[in-house]
Simulated assay, not measured.
Amino acid sequence: MPKNDNKKSRNIAIGAGVAVAAVLLGVASYTATKPDDSTGTVKEEAAGAAPSVEEQAGVYPELEKLARRDAEDPLAQGRADAPVVMVEYADFKCGFCGKFARDTEPGLVKKYVDEGTLRIEWRNFPIFGEDSERAARGAWAAGEQGRFWQFHEAAYAEGSKEKGFGDARLKELAKDAGVKDVDRFVSDADSDAAKAAVKKDQEEAYGLGATSTPSFVINGRPVSGAQPDQVFDQAIEAAAKSAKDAKDAKGRKEADK
């Protein structure tokens, strides 16, 4: 079968298999950031209003296929073969994404990524207009020089989003992130490749029914909003246990052969 047909079949299979999950993720994430009825623009509300892991209960095997596990992916951190993958759909203009990046994600990296349990795969999901799109392309361009996570940290620093993401500001962030070739960064950020990469991530999120940021999928379990640390701890540890149980069961089965 031709390569394109393989890709098309995979996309159709994933799309058909996650219909229920898409509704779940879409409804849950709608409470985190939603359109303002009076203006039609996106308005952020308390992320705490989003359902907990228990309320979102459900692990969807089809959603696990969203993990790319590409060891060369500059927009990911953690072992490619980690038992748990958290796919994160986020926007650099999103206040709650910034809160998660500053208050929760560093702890998850220290507790789970550094010791090999968790892999975090970032997806650009710009929903707040042109500034969001520029920031997403800039983040991708920083990744081309191995500085995505440093750019991520600079862009999500307290007060950063209020400065906007115009061309001059993106250059400042690139320098703050330690990007060595700023001229290349500018060129990469405006390239067709950057636009295509951002569009791919964005369409993936919309295909899942995500309507707000941040939205997450943790080994097939959707979680929406900048939830309390314990929600992520619970989801990651449950996923790690399930992965271990599955591995142990496979080992016993092979030993019995």
Rank of each mutant, 00 (worst) to 15 (best):
L173S: 03
I236G: 00
A135L: 11
L75E: 10
A22F: 02
F232E: 00
K244T: 12
E72M: 14
A32D: 07
A194L: 05
A155H: 06
R10C: 05
K247L: 06
Y206R: 13
K244W: 00
S242R: 14
T39E: 01
E44C: 06
A189M: 13
E64A: 13
E88V: 09
R69P: 03
S52F: 14
V109S: 02
F151Q: 06
P106T: 06
T213R: 02
K99E: 07
M1Q: 12
K247N: 01
K34S: 11
G225C: 11
K175H: 02
F151T: 09
G138H: 01
A21V: 08
A249V: 04
E62M: 13
K253L: 15
L66H: 07
S52D: 08
K171E: 12
P106F: 10
V182I: 14
T104Y: 02
K3A: 12
P83C: 08
T213V: 02
E88S: 13
P74G: 04
R137Q: 14
P74C: 05
T117Y: 00
D114V: 07
L24A: 13
A46R: 15
P222D: 03
F100W: 14
R134E: 00
W122E: 03
R134H: 10
V23R: 09
S52K: 08
Q56Y: 10
K65F: 06
K111N: 05
K163A: 10
G40N: 10
E130M: 07
A142Y: 03
M1A: 15
S187E: 15
A193M: 05
